[in-house]
């Protein structure tokens, strides 16, 4: 008879406790705003706060902008590296990994030094300029995830043959990229997009040091001055992140890719 396997279950249970207890505790605490009863009062206060709405909308817009710029940079780059310059792959992979090695604080000080009001490109002179700088910063921050997602997607399809097939049918390079390649890495691009969204929504360092009204600094501000609302915000941020992960799963597990025999 097969012996029951206890070891892995113990590991799973310990992991679940480590993961779930703080979450449950935070959630439970967020419901205690009204004395003597559980309520969603903290959530009502948070959602009713105009600063919450403004900062969340701002971060969401910056995230969308970062996703668009990221896709426009990463997809053609990964495509060209894979198709024409495979020898450059290690270099490109190294460059895309740099944001994981260089702390965000170093990056943002670099940006401020490079683009301050007395520099050649004084982006920090205006709010729009700083928004643009923040968008670029988030593109850089999300680069390791976006590049890997797109690169994996491109490796899963035979881009060389698809490109040649489209070329033999008279297609130009932009048409190949936007009508043949991009739709076939849609799932990978969406994965990268949702990861970017999740990163941008909670990012604090860059937004704070560039003095922009983003969701990260708002979280910090509320956390420093209130009791129950930060717990509600933590749960909300957590739900947003998991919703992004869920959407990746939803889009990623869509169509069958095998061929009928």
């Amino acid at each position: 008879m097969k012996r029951p396997v206890i070891g892995p279950w113990i590991t799973i249970i310990l992991g679940a406790i480590y993961f779930l207890v703080p979450l449950v505790a935070t959630f439970e605490f967020s419901l205690r705003m009204k004395r003597g009863e559980y309520s969603f009062e903290a959530y009502r206060v948070v959602f009713g706060d105009p600063n919450f709405q403004a900062s969340f909308t701002y971060s969401a817009l910056i995230a969308v902008a970062a996703i668009i710029v990221g896709v426009l940079i990463v997809v053609p780059t990964a495509y060209i590296v894979q198709l024409k310059l495979p020898r450059l792959r290690p270099l490109v992979e190294f460059i895309t990994l740099l944001p994981l090695v260089i702390p965000a604080i170093v990056l943002v000080f670099g940006y401020i030094r490079m683009y301050n009001s007395s520099s050649w490109i004084p982006l920090t002179n205006s709010a729009r300029g700083t928004d643009f700088l923040l968008t670029c910063a988030y593109v850089t921050l999300a680069l390791p995830y976006m590049y890997r997602a797109v690169d994996t997607g491109l490796r899963a399809i035979d881009i060389r043959t698809l490109t040649e097939a489209a070329q033999s049918l008279g297609s130009s390079w932009p048409r190949i990229l936007f009508q043949v390649i991009l739709p076939n890495v849609r799932v990978a691009v969406l994965s990268g997009a949702f990861l970017t969204f999740a990163i941008v929504i909670g990012e604090f360092t860059m937004a704070s040091l560039l003095n922009r009204p983003a969701f990260g600094p708002y979280l910090q501000l509320v956390g420093a001055n209130r009791a129950y609302e930060p717990a509600a915000l933590a749960i909300i941020a957590f739900i947003i992140t998991w919703a992004c992960m869920g959407l990746i799963q939803l889009f990623g597990g869509g169509r069958r890719n095998d061929t009928r025999r």
Partner: peptide, 20 residues
């Protein structure tokens, strides 16, 4: 001439149909 200017039909071993 570039491939897209030659008006040549090509069939590949791996079919190369556009999956989307």
């Amino acid at each position: 001439l570039r491939p897209n200017q030659r008006n040549i039909g090509m069939v590949f071993q791996a079919y190369a149909l556009f999956p989307n």
